[in-house]
C-alpha cells in the first residue's frame, strides 16, 4: 500500500487554502463523475478525488495527514512496514470496498482506499470515544460486490474491517476485525444490508451504530442487470430463427429451461422469461435478446448450401432502400 499524495490528486499545493481545495474538488468531480465522464478510469479517479477531498476539506484530518506526510518524507512510515511502505496481508479486502461513515455531521457515500481506512478509520473511532457526551455511535457505510447467482441464492461472505491503532508501546499497529455476513437470498443491486451494532461505538454507554453494506453486482459473462431484470443475448442459427425452435437456456438460479423461439424470428427479438430475474415482492424478469449467428462458409459444402438457399428462397434485404428520398 503506497502513501497517497492527496494534494497531487486534487492538483493543488500543500499551502492551498480551504477555498482552493473546494474549487479543485468541484472541478475534478465534474470531470470524473462516472455518470457523465467519458474518461475510461472515471470511477477510480472519482474515488481518489472523493477521498482526497474528504481529508483535505476537514481541518483536523488535514493536519493529521500533513503530519503523516512529514513523517514519510523523513523516512518514517506510519505502517508496520516502515518508511511509508504499508504492507497489508494479501486479500484482506477481497470483495469489499471501504467507505467512510457519516462521522462529524454530513454523511459520506464515496469509496475510500485501504490507505484512507488504515490511517483515518481508527482516528475517528478514538475521537468518538473521547467525546464527553451520550450519543449512539455513528453508522458506517461500505459496499460489497457479489455475483448475480449469489444475490439470487444468498451467500455467506467474510469482510475485514482494517484500522490503525496505537498499541501499548505507543506504536501504530494494524488491527483486523472480521465479520461474517450472511447476505439474504433475493437481494438486488442498490439494496442495503444492515448489520446492527457494527458501526462506530456509542458514547457514554449508548449503543454502537450500524454498518450499511450497499449491494453491487459483479459483471457477469452471460447476464446484464437492469434494475431487477436481467438481460442475456441468446444466439440462434438462421434455421432456428426462420423455422422456430426449442432451445435450452441457463437461468441465474442454476436451472436450465426450454424456450420456444417463434418462427420468422428477427435478430434483436426480445423474449421474456417471467420472474426469472431477481426475486422479491415484485420479481424481475429474464429477457433473452435473439442474436442470429451465421454458420461460417468455411467449406465447399457450406458454401454450396448458402448458394442453394439463395436459389430456393430468393430474398433482397435491401429492397426498401431507395435514393429518391421518399
Amino acid at each position: 500500500m503506497d502513501f497517497k499524495d492527496y494534494y497531487k490528486t486534487l492538483g493543488i499545493e500543500r499551502t492551498a487554502p480551504e477555498e482552493e481545495v473546494r474549487k479543485a474538488y468541484r472541478k475534478l468531480a465534474r470531470k470524473y463523475h462516472p455518470d457523465v465522464s467519458k474518461e475510461p478510469d472515471a470511477q477510480a479517479r472519482m474515488r481518489d478525488i472523493n477521498e482526497a477531498n474528504d481529508v483535505l476539506r476537514d481541518k483536523e484530518k488535514r493536519a493529521a495527514y500533513d503530519a503523516l506526510a512529514d513523517r514519510v518524507a523523513q523516512g518514517y512510515g506510519a505502517g508496520e512496514g516502515g518508511r511509508g511502505n504499508y504492507q497489508p496481508p494479501p486479500g484482506w479486502d477481497k470483495g469489499f470496498e471501504f467507505h467512510r461513515g457519516p462521522s462529524q455531521g454530513p454523511a459520506d457515500h464515496a469509496e475510500f482506499s485501504e490507505f484512507f481506512s488504515s490511517v483515518f478509520g481508527k482516528g475517528e473511532h478514538r475521537g468518538a470515544q473521547n467525546r464527553q457526551y451520550r450519543a449512539r455511535g455513528e453508522d458506517h457505510h461500505a459496499a460489497i460486490e457479489i455475483s448475480i447467482e449469489d444475490a439470487i441464492k444468498g451467500v455467506e461472505r467474510e469482510i475485514v474491517l482494517r484500522s490503525l491503532e496505537v498499541d501499548a508501546q505507543g506504536q501504530p499497529a494494524f488491527v483486523n476485525r472480521t465479520l461474517s455476513v450472511k447476505i439474504p437470498a433475493g437481494v438486488h443491486p442498490g439494496q442495503f444490508i444492515r448489520l446492527a451494532g457494527q458501526g462506530m461505538p456509542g458514547h457514554g454507554g449508548e449503543p454502537a451504530g450500524d454498518l450499511f453494506l450497499e449491494v453491487r453486482m459483479a459483471p457477469h459473462k452471460l447476464y446484464r442487470v437492469d434494475g431487477r431484470d436481467l438481460y442475456m443475448t441468446l444466439p440462434v442459427t438462421p434455421t432456428e430463427a426462420a423455422l422456430g425452435a426449442q432451445v435450452h437456456v441457463p437461468t441465474p438460479a442454476g436451472h436450465v429451461v426450454e424456450v420456444t423461439v417463434p418462427p420468422n424470428a428477427r435478430s434483436g427479438l426480445k423474449l421474456r422469461l417471467k420472474e426469472r430475474g431477481f426475486p422479491g415482492k415484485t420479481p424481475g424478469h429474464l429477457y433473452l435478446l435473439l442474436d442470429i449467428a451465421l454458420p461460417p462458409a468455411d467449406s465447399e459444402a457450406a458454401r454450396q448450401a448458402y448458394v442453394q438457399l439463395a436459389q430456393a428462397a430468393p430474398f433482397d434485404p435491401r429492397r426498401h432502400l431507395t435514393t429518391s428520398g421518399v
Binding site: 476485525r177 455476513v181 439474504p184
Partner: peptide, 12 residues
C-alpha cells in the same frame, strides 16, 4: 485481529 459473526443482517 478478532473475529465476530454478525447475527443481525437484514435487507433494508
Amino acid at each position: 485481529s478478532s473475529t465476530a459473526t454478525s447475527t443481525h443482517a437484514t435487507t433494508v
